[in-house]
Nucleic acid binder design. Structure first.
Lengths: 217, 217
DNA sequence: GTAACGCTGTGATTTCCTTCACGAATCTCA
DNA sequence: TGAGATTCGTGAAGGAAATCACAGCGTTAC
């Protein structure tokens, strides 16, 4: 199937839409309008409708979308039907928090193995996840069919860990280390850089005063 | 000085440039070219030069930029000269990891107080940061002049915590909770949504792409 | 039956961001 | 001194993403 290229931002928003749909499933009525999804997810109604075009689920005029069906359609679009196993590298403070965060949340997208260089961390089970030495990445990645990995190591180790992961077949990396990873073009990386994010917030906390000007002009 | 409005992405990249400059300070020569900064930070040379226009530091042709001076100029541009104190709300697994991550890194942008609803967590010191009950947010935010906050609570608590923080004078929020916060227009929020990020990575790990160029959110 | 209403799907438009491309500036070396 | 090589700063072009705006269609009211 030759599909239009879908932007990174759209995929991110679809994930957010699905989350608000799951929340509405328990609380609200069976149908929902684009403007309601928009309000709950911080988007605009037009953007919601345009994003939903890519998943191929159509609402009905004057009735909006069926919550359960739409959530299922987004899931079909975003998720691998067979599930995807995830590896975590770096079991420091942040790594352990990530393990706790994802433990038991999505069976279809679970962290099934953790790796660390420190010998004292190896062969323990943390938040339900076994911790192995770095050297076993190739073996275990092959055994568990791991294509997705999370890097939560110090900055110095991140690139070498990424190289190892990619050699072991990983095609997508969520990188918490504060460096820009060099990866081949068929590997997708997403950086979650807490320092950069905090500096952005700090900057705009001081400079965000355009609103008064806007009302004037 | 009437300055052109600077985009969120540019601020983020400036933070990244500064980081690679700090790293180059110890290892490399005293000057650096835009293409070197670009390679180390995952941008393009043209973008580096354009971003640097906003900070008002000029390099010299054929010599590039003086590493130390450029890093200082970016700091002058990004940072508050008097420093900015940060509050953290939510001292669970993730909150503690955030405290550890930022502990002692930037004296100019330090987490000086933590808050949690659980009585057993308050009045302890975690990674060098004192933990207070939620009810004391107004008092302590005023005393420490806090304008920047990090939310690491469960999703259900995040909006009410945000409201409290904003009422206490906070103007920038780094939100780790998986919800979209409703805030007044003079408050800047940045979402670091680990679930959304991991789902994006999982999606693009499956859908082989030719080329990516990406920064976080 | 039909008129009025409100929401969806999507072409058209606008806005924002990135990349291109080139003049000007600085350095090297003969 | 001047030619050649290299990089910066930035106007202009290009591209991508968000928004607008409206036709089309269920639904409801009477």
């Amino acid at each position: 199937m030759l599909r239009k290229r879908i932007s990174v931002r759209t995929i991110g928003r679809l994930s957010a839409y699905r989350r608000v749909l799951f929340r509405s499933l328990t609380t609200g009525p069976a149908n929902v309008y684009s403007y309601q999804i928009a309000a709950l997810s911080g988007a605009t109604p037009a953007q919601v409708r345009r994003d939903l075009m890519s998943v191929g689920y159509s609402g009905s005029p004057n009735r909006g979308y069926q919550v359960a069906e739409l959530a299922a359609s987004i899931g079909e679009f975003l998720d691998d039907p067979d599930g995807q196993n995830v590896a975590l590298v770096g079991v420091g403070n942040l790594g352990r928090a990530i393990l706790a965060y994802f433990a038991g949340r999505r069976p279809r997208l679970a962290i099934v193995a953790a790796f660390d260089a420190a010998p004292e961390k190896v062969n323990r089970t943390i938040h339900g996840c076994r911790c192995y030495p770095i050297a076993q990445i190739p073996t275990i990645a092959a055994r568990e069919n791991i294509r997705v990995a999370v890097i939560a190591t110090p900055a110095e180790a991140a690139q070498s860990v990424a190289d190892t992961l990619i050699a072991a077949g990983v095609r997508g990396i969520l990188n918490f280390a504060p460096v820009s990873l060099k990866v081949p073009p068929w590997v997708y990386t997403e950086d979650l850089d807490m320092t950069m994010a905090l500096e952005k917030v700090a900057y705009f906390a001081r400079h965000e005063k355009q609103q008064e000007r806007d009302t004037q002009s």
